[in-house]
Design a binder for these strands. Sequence first.
DNA 1: TTGCTAAGTGAGTGATTACTAACTTAATGG
DNA 2: CCATTAAGTTAGTAATCACTCACTTAGCAA
Lengths: 204, 204
Amino acid sequence: MLIRKPAATRKAEIVEAALRLADELGPDRLTTEAIAGAVGLTQPAIFRHFPTKQDLWEAVGARIGELMEERWAAVPADEGRATDRVRALVATQLGLIQATPAIPAILFSRELHVENQGLRRAFLELMSRFHRLIAGLLAQARDDGELCPELDPDDLAALVIGLPPGLAVRWSLSDRGFDLGEEGRRLLELQLRGFTSEATRRSS
Amino acid sequence: MLIRKPAATRKAEIVEAALRLADELGPDRLTTEAIAGAVGLTQPAIFRHFPTKQDLWEAVGARIGELMEERWAAVPADEGRATDRVRALVATQLGLIQATPAIPAILFSRELHVENQGLRRAFLELMSRFHRLIAGLLAQARDDGELCPELDPDDLAALVIGLPPGLAVRWSLSDRGFDLGEEGRRLLELQLRGFTSEATRRSS
DNA sequence: TTGCTAAGTGAGTGATTACTAACTTAATGG
DNA sequence: CCATTAAGTTAGTAATCACTCACTTAGCAA
């Protein structure tokens, strides 16, 4: 018959289905009916786990944050050159967008901006932390003589973190017609090369 | 009493209102009722001008394309250094996003991606033309000795056109808490500087 | 084995929304 | 000044959707 699962498990299933369907249908067209169907439940069952749809969006937002942090954490913190760690961190962002393509649309969706200011601020905080992380690594790279010393690591980091979403626009418009990770890595090389100090460039 | 306007004028008013409201309410929450209210008409009047809501979205999309082209065309084609024209073109993109902040959300919206593939392709074509435009200018700059000769202008252009949307994500998450144009121009300077050939950098 | 808890269902509701049909009247050209 | 055209209105409809409520039963602990 029907298998009942503990609430925590179901909640996770629902959030995951919501993320997938938000991509397939668009964040706006995401209905509780569609989610229920994907999970294999009736529509009212969703409301047992999330009293309102906004609660569901909140959980989806939190999940995206978790996914980001998980992937950052998987990048070893203290080995290799600082620039290599920047490469790895950017690669996680590209991989995340590829695995969960609804993310850019959700970041711009008004679920986040009009409906849920708190969540918007949470994402801003997350992005700021990522910014500081990258900026710190770039500062370290600069101190190691890898990067041009007169460039501001904060500004460089802004360019680096803008790269994945900037590329995602073209990826999205092209109907995902190219490999986001591959293209992103190639462009990041170019980006980092522009920051490189002449001494290092000659020596490597 | 009620002022009647020719269909062409009303259509333009409706599209403009839709663009503004798509930002305020989100592209998803954009209802014919809200548009009608903003234009000063009753809701069914919208359907006299646009038989279906999809026709309206198509017109909105076409309008965005027009706005882009208008602004590009305003950049003088044959004066100044090639890099200065790149600066001017990027500035138009930043200005457009600032003036019509719904654009990024619309680019990712499923109105465009699931509902209206033709429009998506039109935007891709528009972006490709912009890409070629920038790449051509960068190639020219390279030939003028302004840019490092071994860098591929196509890839450099990809970084340059990704800058405005990449920055728009942060702008949006920060609740538009900084000047997009100003920040964008500063980062573009940094970006271009990375592409600059050493000879030029020393001489300027 | 049994009794309790909570996951899930069936049936429904009010609000919203894209869209229609029949009618009205402002604007325009002759 | 009048007739025609077309912009706009009033009233309504079918569909969709978030959400509710009373009820059922799977799963677990004692």
